[in-house]
């Protein structure tokens, strides 16, 4: 037994070394056959697949995930970027939560006005038939990973507008909801608790995001 210390995981090193020779098997050719004719989304998809396949087969994916998981998770947990989007009464309380008395910003919240820069969608009111496609678009415009908070009775189930002809029975009928905050309207303290619940959920449920499928 050699006294020389082996750095890293020997099994893994062997794994990487042995697989490099048959790289052709793992990586596919670009879908259209020619690099120049690829559209940008096709190219991205191809790169995505190629890197994922290599990382998966060689075991690198798990390694990178384990290293980056706590870092990404920490970042996601402590700086949620909710969308600056108000529907009804709860939107006022959402604004009031940012006011000096409650100061929800100390949880790391940064409200952004563009869905492209956000990862939390707060549905803070009744969703009407006319709004539903727009809200769905907003949700789809947000980059992954993303979470949805249903704030208040209207967003949970329709609330006081349960028998209306134009209000959808809850936001979870068309987008996945992560945290429900009851109340009519939700108090700023409850919103704060909702964000803490979301933090807990991110820590438990969401692993690192490098090469995630």
């Amino acid at each position: 037994m050699s006294s020389k210390k082996v750095r890293g995981n020997p099994g893994l090193r062997r794994g990487v070394g042995s697989k490099t020779t048959d790289l052709d098997e793992i990586m596919e050719d670009p879908p259209a056959g020619d690099w120049l004719t690829l559209r940008s989304d096709q190219l991205l998809e191809w790169i995505d697949n190629a890197v994922y396949n290599v990382a998966e087969t060689t075991g690198m994916r798990e390694v990178v995930n384990r290293v980056t998981r706590p870092i990404f998770n920490y970042g996601q947990r402590f700086s949620p970027h909710p969308l600056h989007f108000g529907i009804m009464c709860c939107a006022i309380e959402m604004g009031q939560a940012s006011a000096p008395d409650h100061d929800i910003d100390r949880l790391g919240l940064v409200y952004r006005s563009s869905p492209r820069q956000c990862d939390v969608l707060i549905v803070n009111g009744p969703v009407c038939e006319k709004l539903r496609p727009k809200l769905k678009t907003l949700y789809e415009q947000m980059p992954e990973p993303k979470w949805v908070i249903a704030m208040g009775e209207c967003a949970i189930s329709g609330g006081p507008y349960w028998d209306s002809y134009s209000v959808v029975a809850g936001a979870d009928t068309f987008i996945p909801v992560d945290v429900y905050i009851p109340g009519c309207p939700v108090r700023p303290e409850a919103l704060m608790h909702g964000f803490l619940t979301l933090q807990k959920k991110i820590r438990e449920k969401e692993p690192g995001m490098f090469l995630r499928r």
Partner: peptide, 23 residues
Amino acid sequence: LGYLHRSVEKMGERRKYFMNTTL
């Protein structure tokens, strides 16, 4: 307009007078 049309007027017709104050 219309993204927040909750049909309060129609819902009021289904509720009693004193119940409408919540709406």
